[in-house]
Design a protein around this nucleic acid. Structure first.
Lengths: 211, 211
DNA sequence: CTGGGAAGTCAACAGCCGTTGGCATACGGT
DNA sequence: ACCGTATGCCAACGGCTGTTGACTTCCCAG
């Protein structure tokens, strides 16, 4: 990638006048490519998802993908844009933070195939793995740090929470372990909330949960 | 795969006399291929690990891989053979089952790169995913069923346990989230044991862990 | 010593991949 | 109506992949 922006070979990419809401004629194509790419990356992972297949799904020529996204990596970067959209948990009582966190993740994931795609790819693609690390160290990390007493313990607590939440995403959406696929979201919330709550607030010197 | 066994093109593969401990001259090569394959599959995943690279690591010709393992899929099947080696937990007091399970998994994983390899590949390769499903539904599932009171709840409990354990394997060995990589195994055991214990024995109708 | 089969080497094939440059077309401002 | 430009298609290149077949070398039983 020698150029930071899409090459747009025909000439300079400068918008003519209004900076914001201007729509180009090719935006529909761009969107179609992105939609097809998200679906293919989610279904097949980075390596097995070919530009030719994505282009065929979007009913355009493979070279259009290169023109609009520069390279396969650039396309993936655009397709795997992902925001946890963590809300502000300031108004949540401390003993219900686990429930709130799990609930947010479950509703965020059901019906959005971006995270499974990112997860699939992150298992083999170093760039995608770095992206996942950044998301969970950044977005989740700071959210946890805001509600945890001892700030030195925040990264470890966030890591443990990520391990459980990503474990659910992995087994439910990627590997599709039957028992995990079958659990209704409400039951899942009931099971997971206490785990996250404990990772969030339990005394780290504890040896065992009380009987 | 038309033949269940390695083709061995030169002729029939029948051992001459003694059925068991007979060692062929090529066993060293076979082992070298397998070792190189496990390392490459673990590091790169199925798609990015090429037969040529594996053969180069093992200092042999790529065609030898085909002769001994039939195809890339056959090689992976041999390299990703994985047994959880779950012991018999009959002698463990019920309230320490979580600790025993987590401890076994941690010692089983540290120093054996086979599971990360399998996990990496399972994210994109349907055959490997099926293998992981079989391992956790089979080996872990029956172990859990033996110690759980209500047998109808066993699969769900096993699924939740798998979600936490695989989540740890994913974040610690595959994605390498820094906070998860840095936790010493002893601390990890302390944090995870209560979670697994709860998935194993807690009342499913509970709403929340007691404060 | 000799023949035969196993072990290993070499070069090549066919296929798919990401990527590129050239060319036709349709649009929109003037 | 004109023309520059954005949009799109086509054909192709070079590279890498799994896989194959023929060839040489080595070992060991007879």
């Amino acid at each position: 990638m020698t150029d930071g922006v899409h090459p747009q070979r025909g000439g300079p990419d400068a918008e003519p006048a209004a900076g914001a809401g201007r729509t180009r004629r090719s935006d529909a194509t761009r969107a179609a490519i992105l939609r097809a790419a998200q679906a293919r990356f989610a279904a097949d992972g980075y390596d097995r998802a070919t530009i030719r297949a994505i282009a065929a799904d979007a009913r355009i020529d493979p070279s259009m993908v290169m023109r609009y996204y520069g390279s396969k990596e650039g396309l993936f970067a655009a397709a795997a844009e992902f925001d946890l959209r963590l809300p502000d948990f300031a108004g949540v009582p401390p003993e219900r933070l686990g429930e709130a966190l799990v609930g947010h993740f479950l509703t965020r994931w059901e019906g959005d195939a971006t995270l499974p795609a990112l997860l699939r790819t992150a298992c083999t693609n170093p760039g995608a793995a770095e992206r996942v690390r950044a998301i969970f160290a950044g977005q989740l990390g700071v959210a946890v740090a805001r509600v945890v007493a001892d700030p030195t313990q925040a990264p470890r607590r966030a890591g443990l929470i990520a391990s459980q939440l990503l474990g659910v995403a992995l087994t439910r959406y990627v590997l599709r372990l039957p028992p995990m696929v079958d659990i209704p979201p409400a039951d899942l919330l009931t099971w997971l909330a206490p785990t996250i709550q404990r990772y969030l607030t339990a005394d780290p010197t504890q040896a065992r949960v009380d009987p």
